[in-house]
Nucleic acid binder design. Structure first.
Length: 196
DNA sequence: CATGGGATTGACT
DNA sequence: GTCAATCCCATGC
């Protein structure tokens, strides 16, 4: 696996990354929800161009973009598209796999559905913080890995991104349609579309 | 240097 | 349903 895998269009990669696993410090989960962000649209941090904050977004694909949200949470993104393009896939929810007890301790909650069902929750469960910003996601401390070749392709749901005010109409959110571990239910009109 | 705005979450009415 | 916590960083003076 090489970083070239992540050089493709961000919307395709956001869909593709559902089903991959993320592992860090012996704890891991399977990605069940993602969103795409691209410097051409104003919801993306990279919309403002290259700054100290967005430097990682414009850098080579396959690295982590971790930033602090609302002063409290760390949010984890996968930087994609070629160097010079500011784009990333936000990881919004995981299905817990390894280290579930550690996740419970870190989150102070028991229910498995509550451990990683949100972008701030999953970084807390995995203990991912800002110091990992810019780190390599292939050979680095955080490891991203593709699903088994034998893994079934699951129905996908597509919708609009959560929690943004600008470019809120773009259908750039992807989830495993029937997962119990997504960050929030789909609005009634939004759920039907499939892209298996 | 001061200000304002979040890609959220959990507690509370 | 409402709302506050809290910090990084871009922007503007």
């Amino acid at each position: 696996m090489s970083a070239r895998l992540f050089a493709g269009p961000v919307v395709d990669l956001a869909r593709e990354l559902v089903g991959w696993t993320v592992a860090y410090g012996g704890v891991s989960g399977r990605i069940v929800e993602t969103e795409a962000y691209h410097d051409s649209e104003p919801a993306c941090h990279a919309y403002v161009g290259r700054t100290r904050r967005t430097e990682v977004l414009f850098g080579p694909p396959g690295r982590a973009y971790v930033y602090r949200s609302y002063g409290i949470h760390a949010l984890l993104n996968v930087v994609v598209e070629p160097e010079g393009v500011g784009a990333a896939v936000l990881l919004r929810a995981l299905e817990p796999l390894d280290g579930v007890e550690l996740m419970r301790m870190r989150r102070g909650l028991e229910r498995q559905e509550d451990l990683c069902s949100g972008p701030g929750k999953l970084t807390q469960a995995l203990a991912i913080d800002l110091e990992l910003n810019g780190s390599d996601l292939i050979g680095g401390p955080i490891r991203l890995a593709p699903p088994d070749r034998s893994a079934d392709r699951v129905p996908m749901a597509v919708g609009t991104r959560v929690g943004i005010t600008k470019a809120a109409d773009l259908p750039w959110r992807f989830c495993e349609a029937e997962s119990r571990f997504v960050s929030r239910p789909w609005p009634p009109g939004d759920r039907a579309r499939r892209a298996a």
